[in-house]
């Protein structure tokens, strides 16, 4: 049982590590785009070509982007830190893993999930929202790039479209995977709670 459990445990950790890393990258990019706009405003570079009427709401939107991106990166980093230490230990381990060591990793991961359960749940809508924003931005870049907005093909806008659409798709995928991860670990938390009865009996029978 230990070998199968270990294999599954490691695969889950690797998958989760990848998702949180992708999510962190998306958050960092959301923050970077917000900063890029604000710096351009400060330096008075009209890279976004936004009319004066919309400057303030657009600046507020990008400030919110920076804040959300910052929170997004911090939350992802906090989640990643707990998973990273267990993952590193499990990867560095060579040879057969004693059942007790595996149980220790499971307990640590469960404890980490319990502590960050709300954050992981929040990642689902935040990731979806971020993903949709990138997809909208990417689509507008694409329309601009192929000349439907502004006229003429613009290579820079096409590059931006590819980047934004990729990040948007990755974020939407992250949402789906976060939901699956959350469902899977919620079930384990419930399973651990159910086994408490057996553990209480074992402890108190003496």
């Amino acid at each position: 049982m230990t070998e199968n459990t270990l294999t599954q445990f490691k695969k889950e950790l690797d998958s989760f590590f990848l998702i949180v890393s992708m999510n962190m990258a998306a958050g960092a990019l959301a923050m970077a785009f917000g900063l890029q706009y604000l710096v351009a405003r400060i330096l008075d570079l009209s890279v976004w070509q936004v009319s004066d009427t919309f400057r303030i709401p657009v600046a507020v939107f990008f400030l919110v982007c920076i804040g959300l991106g910052f929170g997004w990166v911090l939350s992802s980093a906090r989640i990643l830190r707990g998973v990273k230490s267990v993952r590193r230990e499990s990867r560095l381990r060579t040879g057969p893993v004693p059942a007790e060591t595996l149980t220790c990793w499971i307990v640590r991961t469960l404890a980490h999930y319990r502590e960050n359960r709300q954050t992981v749940r929040w990642m689902v809508p935040v990731s979806a929202l971020g993903g949709c924003a990138f997809l909208v931005l990417g689509t507008s870049n694409l329309l601009q790039g192929i000349g439907l907005i502004g006229g003429g093909i613009q290579a820079f806008a096409l590059v931006a479209a590819v980047i934004n659409l990729t990040i948007g798709t990755a974020s939407v995928l992250c949402t789906l995977y976060f939901r699956r991860y959350s469902a899977s670990w919620d079930e384990r938390i419930d399973g651990a709670a159910r086994s408490e009865n057996a553990l209480r009996c074992a402890l108190e029978q003496r």
Partner: peptide
Amino acid sequence: SSLYQKLF
């Protein structure tokens, strides 16, 4: 150990 490994 057995109960927690069964979770997986």
